[in-house]
């Protein structure tokens, strides 16, 4: 449904655009209907930048975005409006998405005025109640309240309900649970899974691997703007290949093992992969010269090889400018 192909973003920074920041590099990924894809990486890795480009809150600097086969990389005002009927985003801080001086109802009124001016009041009320029910909110608990009278979890669900009123097909959820506490988090995560089973595609942006693992069908691991590994969730979590992914997994706080335990396990795996680069080994096996990356770009994946079915990995170097550990 949604496909990003070699998407790039360069932020012009510095007084005279002297120190440009390449925040997203050649990112290729896709999200299908009825699927949750997690975009995982540390802070500053470019996750939100990708989310904002998909939502047209930021222009991309290169590459293409397609939605249902249509190129939506650049959209005019009218086309953008239509696009937003199908694609919506929810962000980290629910409080900043509401104007504190208005009752939360106003959010829905604005939506109605701009998208459904001809829907009758009673019909609208019905749709609203249905959308609230879908996110397990009781209209009586919510309507007529100011944002500060509701919890973060309730506001986050309200924003999702708002997106659902538009009958969207794709939801970009950027760190929507990092501000919530544990028991509310799991409710919102379960809600996402339920929405996906109704056919919604979800791009779930997070830095928390256990949450990404819990909900997603596929994961994309991002490091300094580059996709270093992606694939079916179980494959990536059970057999992380890229040094960054392995390091990330070793940092997750577990409830049954200490960091020391996890590091010891990881050390074994690292020893087996030391000085190697599965990406370049695969290229060599396919008969291509080592380091000849331009030709790899003609294949299915920009800078990634399919290590095992549905599990892709890129060159084992960390940042884009670092050397490959295998010296390729």
């Amino acid at each position: 449904m949604l496909t990003l192909d070699r998407l790039d973003k360069v932020y012009r920074t510095g007084t005279f655009g002297t120190s440009d920041l390449h925040a997203v590099r050649q990112v290729t990924l896709d999200v299908q209907r009825g699927e949750v894809v997690s975009l995982i990486g540390e802070s500053g890795s470019g996750k939100s930048t990708i989310g904002k480009m998909v939502l047209h809150l930021l222009d991309s600097s290169g590459g293409t975005i397609t939605f249902d086969g249509r190129d939506v990389t650049h959209l005019g005002f009218r086309a953008r409006r239509e696009y937003y009927r199908k694609v919506q985003g929810v962000f980290q801080d629910p409080f900043s998405s509401f104007n504190p001086i208005f009752k939360v109802d106003r959010t829905f009124e604005t939506l109605r005025r701009s998208y459904f001016p001809r829907v009758s009041s009673s019909d609208w009320r019905g749709r609203l109640e249905e959308a609230l029910a879908a996110v397990s909110l009781e209209p009586g608990d919510i309507l007529g309240k100011f944002p500060h009278q509701l919890s973060g979890g309730q506001l986050q669900r309200l924003l999702i309900a708002r997106a659902l009123l538009l009958d969207i097909e794709l939801l970009v959820a950027d760190e929507i649970i990092s501000m919530l506490d544990a028991s509310t988090r799991i409710d919102v995560l379960n809600l996402l899974v339920e929405l996906k089973s109704r056919g919604l595609g979800i791009l779930f942006v997070t830095h928390d691997l256990s949450l990404g693992n819990y909900v997603s069908d596929r994961v994309v691991i991002l490091y300094k703007g580059r996709v270093v590994e992606r694939g079916v969730t179980a494959a990536v979590f059970d057999d992380p290949l890229h040094p960054y992914t392995r390091d990330l997994l070793a940092s997750v706080p577990h409830l049954d093992r200490t960091w020391e335990d996890v590091e010891a396990e990881e050390a074994e795996r690292s020893a087996a992969l030391a000085g190697r680069c599965l990406y370049h080994e695969a290229l060599a096996a396919q008969g291509r010269a080592l380091g000849e990356e331009a030709s790899a770009a003609d294949g299915d994946d920009v800078g990634l090889v399919e290590h095992s079915p549905g599990h892709f990995v890129g060159c084992f170097r960390l940042a884009a400018g670092d050397p490959c550990p295998a010296g390729a």
Binding site: A182, R185, I186, S210, L211, Y214, F237, H254, L255
Partner: peptide, 12 residues
């Protein structure tokens, strides 16, 4: 509270 925490291996 403990039961509401997803562990690294838990999947929906």
């Amino acid at each position: 509270l403990i039961g509401a925490l997803p562990q690294v291996g838990d999947r929906y």
